[in-house]
Amino acid sequence: MSSTLAEQRAEWRERIAGIGDTLRAESETNEDLRQLSPATEAALRSVNAFNLCSPEELGGVNAHPRLQTQVIADITSHDSSAGWCALIGAHESAWLASRLPDSSVERIFAHSDERWPVTCGSIAPEGEAEQVEGGWMVTGRWGWASGIHHSDFILSMSRITGQEPEPGKPPPLLCAAAPKADVVVEDTWHTLGMRGTGSTHYRYENVFVPDEMCLAGFERPPLRGGGWLARPTVTFLTAAGYGFPLGVAKRAVEEITRQATEHTRTGQRASISEQQHFQGDLGRCVALVEAMEGYGHHLFEELLAAPINSLEDAVRMDDRARAALRWAHQTAEDVVRTAHEHAGGPAVYSDNVLARLLRDIQTVSQHVIQTQSAYIRRGQHQLGIPVRPGL
């Protein structure tokens, strides 16, 4: 890996450009399959996209947050489903790499240079875990397992049976990882958008999870890896996560710029590109994309350098990052809607790129991390109202 951030960004931009044609060519196949195609998965693995956030000592990149944003934005600008699966795989593989005990990590990552152990799953506490000799019996059903079809390990979060929470504290939870072969993968992913991500439901049916496959709690620092990986959990998720709406917005501007020169709307003599109303809206969209990119760069540099001396500092940082992510998604949706509106009749067809982008950004905007509570909590901080940890 190159030494300076500028060199790393240039190197990764070239890497992603090298798989861009493949990602675009496979977009419809991903949607038809309702999961990433083998060619898409292979392309992402070929550039080590799933290694992006993991500790360097295990073969990961532990990339600077600005680089994470750029890489996911570049992938997403070619295909939304590929970008989303790349960021989920990069995040959750990093949790596996940074929070499992040494004995498990040595075994799981022993051949990571040949095949990176991609991880996905949910950390919503939807399961039940019962302690037994040497580990835990886990049962439960979870959703939103983006990338499960190409993943090697599947995470789960469960309530621990028989253990009551201490006064004033949340209930005890267990985060476990199981090989995909031990998990039942359902077929429930029939959706408005993000169809190619395969974000379906899955079940642990009385699965034995040894102690060495249980992750250290997210309220604690990671066992290995520093830098951005050691930031509070929600903050850690936002740098790569911010790249998704940025990439969607960039692709929307690219598409409407191209389509506007090729299409004349019914009743008009001039092409869309010759209409001043369109030119003004396009200029506004370009400015919004530039603002998104610039704000993200500024914010993540600040959050990377900011000291954390208390739980309150960590909560404030997480909520600042969440509010930025909420804004980025709303801004991207504004850009996509504007582009889609100007595109005219061709954009009503499901295979039109702008139609797909609109479905995708509307779907992802329902994600819990970028709901309205992100702004509410940010406003509470501004007003000096005490804000508890959480979403």
Rank of each mutant, 00 (worst) to 15 (best):
R258F: 11
Q380R: 12
A43I: 01
M213E: 07
R320W: 04
R337L: 15
A10L: 13
L23S: 02
N352S: 14
V368H: 15
Y202R: 04
C53W: 01
I72Q: 06
L215F: 01
I72N: 00
V47A: 03
H329V: 10
F300N: 01
C85S: 09
G217K: 09
M137I: 14
A86K: 01
S54V: 00
L33Y: 00
S271G: 11
T264L: 08
V185P: 08
E166T: 08
H342L: 07
C175S: 14
L229E: 03
Q35P: 09
A239W: 01
I160A: 07
L5T: 05
R45V: 03
A252N: 05
A328S: 10
A63K: 03
L215I: 04
F218M: 15
E333K: 07
A305C: 11
L325V: 04
Q35F: 06
T40C: 08
S310Q: 08
I385L: 15
D334C: 14
A25V: 03
E255L: 07
S373C: 12
R45P: 08
L44C: 04
F50V: 03
R356S: 11
A239C: 09
E133D: 15
A181D: 15
M137S: 12
G247K: 00
P346M: 06
P389T: 00
R159M: 15
E57M: 07
P386D: 04
F300I: 02
R356T: 08
Q268S: 14
L391F: 15
E290C: 09
W12T: 06
Q68I: 08
A82R: 01
V183D: 02
G127A: 03
Q68W: 05
P386N: 06
A43W: 03
E302L: 12
L173T: 01
Q268Y: 10
T69W: 03
R316N: 11
L299W: 05
P101S: 07
Q275Y: 09
T238G: 07
A321F: 00
T29P: 12
T363V: 08
N30S: 12
K180G: 06
L52I: 00
E128A: 11
G379I: 03
L354H: 00
N51P: 09
P55S: 09
P170G: 08
